[in-house]
């Protein structure tokens, strides 16, 4: 990179692409070398699905319902941890500052983390779908399989934004705890484990404030098991959350950049 920049030439497309690839690879390697992250991320959704979707499925529709909601449950950790914990750590260790001094575009940094979240998310979704289809006997129309995967994976966007906001503000030691504090209660209260309609009414009303609830409702709409609220509502809430998280994150960065 230094060579290319030193030549005074505008870096070629291949070079710029290579920056993205290398950063993504670095991000994936970083994460993959953190079993404390990878094992829960990849294994927990599948393990819980085996428990609650296969072995202890209380109703015939439970395996199908959990396929959608555990999919959402599965994409949240890679989105939140990659940005939240990763960013906080790099910010405090100075690695972020180092990266900022290189000509690497900010886009590559973001791309790498989103791509990592997508990759892990896709692996979880694939694992869940295979488990559901083989062990729980779930059968969906082809468009439903694809739409379900698409909705769930598109969900990395708002959660990456949330991770960015957390990572921009929270100290590294606190980041893991904060992320877990946000993610596990939100997962439960958003109906990812049991449908919200079994909640007491005040909890049902509370559910609508969580982005995970709205993403899960979109996923459940694909299999006609949602609460019947309009798609626009869920999209609007998710979009608004994303924008809000990005604004919060940008304030955080300004604070970091202006000592």
């Amino acid at each position: 990179m230094a060579v290319a920049a030193g030549a005074g030439a505008r870096p070629g497309l291949a070079h710029r692409a290579r920056v993205y690839v290398m950063e993504t690879r670095a991000q994936c390697l970083t994460v993959a070398r953190t079993p404390a992250f990878t094992v829960p991320t990849l294994i927990f959704p599948l393990m819980f699905y085996v428990f609650f979707g296969v072995v202890m499925a209380f109703t015939p529709t439970t395996p199908t319902y959990l396929l959608a909601t555990y999919g959402v449950f599965g994409i949240i950790p890679p989105s939140l941890f990659g940005f939240g914990v990763g960013l906080a750590t790099e910010r405090e260790s100075g690695a972020l500052l180092l990266k900022q001094t290189t000509p690497m575009p900010v886009g590559a940094y973001l791309f790498a983390r989103v791509a990592m979240a997508l990759l892990f998310g896709a692996a979880v979704v694939l694992g869940l779908f295979l488990l559901g289809a083989t062990a729980a006997g779930v059968a969906l129309y082809r468009w439903q399989w694809f739409a379900l995967a698409g909705v769930v994976l598109a969900g990395v966007v708002p959660f990456c934004a949330l991770g960015l906001a957390i990572g921009a503000w929270v100290r590294a030691q606190a980041a893991v705890a904060i992320v877990n504090l946000v993610y596990l209660p939100m997962a439960f209260l958003s109906g990812l484990w049991v449908p919200v309609w079994v909640f007491p009414s005040f909890l049902q009303e509370l559910a609508v404030v969580f982005p995970a609830y709205h993403l899960a409702q979109l996923a459940l709409k694909v299999i006609a098991m949602d609460e019947g609220q309009p798609v626009v509502l869920h999209l609007a809430v998710l979009g608004a959350c994303t924008v809000a998280f990005l604004i919060v994150a940008s304030f955080g960065f300004r604070r970091v950049s202006a000592p």
């Binding site: 694939l126 779908f129 059968a139 969906l140 082809r142 399989w145 995967a149």
Partner: peptide, 15 residues
């Protein structure tokens, strides 16, 4: 990765 993902989804059972 995309081929594996799409291929697997395509092979999943339909009702």
């Amino acid at each position: 990765a995309v081929v594996v993902f799409v291929g697997t989804l395509t092979a999943l059972p339909e009702p």
